[in-house]
Design a protein around this nucleic acid. Sequence first.
DNA 1: GTAGCATGCTACATTATTTGTAGCGAAGCA
DNA 2: TGCTTCGCTACAAATAATGTAGCATGCTAC
Lengths: 117, 117
Amino acid sequence: MPKRRPIPAKTAGQRRVRGSRTGRPIMVLLDLFGRRWSLRILWELREQSMTSRALRAACDEASPTVLQARLTELRDAGFIELIPASGYGLTPSGRELLETLLPLHRFAERWSKRGAS
Amino acid sequence: MPKRRPIPAKTAGQRRVRGSRTGRPIMVLLDLFGRRWSLRILWELREQSMTSRALRAACDEASPTVLQARLTELRDAGFIELIPASGYGLTPSGRELLETLLPLHRFAERWSKRGAS
DNA sequence: GTAGCATGCTACATTATTTGTAGCGAAGCA
DNA sequence: TGCTTCGCTACAAATAATGTAGCATGCTAC
């Protein structure tokens, strides 16, 4: 039973939402981000665009197979784009998404400095 | 080659940070959240505590094996806790984490309503 | 123009993770 | 005692990720 979801894709210029069953957008995102390297890729692109190979280097040399898969998914989702001149970079939407994730950085620092609790 | 990381764990009351290679806290988080069901679990607990079985139901009946693994990891990370009376719930730290993730909900709504870009 | 070199991307066998189903032992309650 | 739920585990089958190699294309330098 392939529980894995075909990932959001464009349909005639319109996003086809089909999340973890309900189609609720937040579920689609949580599902997409729950795949290996998704969040990491977005994170590494936060300050600069990179070629796919540089991105791979930035991501602990993750295998090109998955990386390429994530890249395609994130592209279909409209968060990143490939610009021949500069490589992969965030779209306006992707940048907006990253804005909402930035507080996570500060939280991570606080979190690591204290015990569990 | 098990690239998979043993997950942050307590060591004599002290968190042992050991991220995706650098040990940077943000990497540890991105890594933890890049595993299936991690984010979803936190999300489902945002408003109420739940028994492990209710949580499973809330998470599309994900297999108890992974769910249990994630639960343990999130517990070790100090984001959730098991209280016999009420089941699994967020710790103060977990609630703080969730606060930083809430904007994601609003973003998801906006995102789904427009095309990609 | 042809020999390099870097790009985005793919093939494919191996290894790791997840799924689905069943069920255990403990605790609560009748 | 019998019934129910709890947290959690076993384990085989299915799916996803890894690691290595390499292709085709588009450069720039000779």
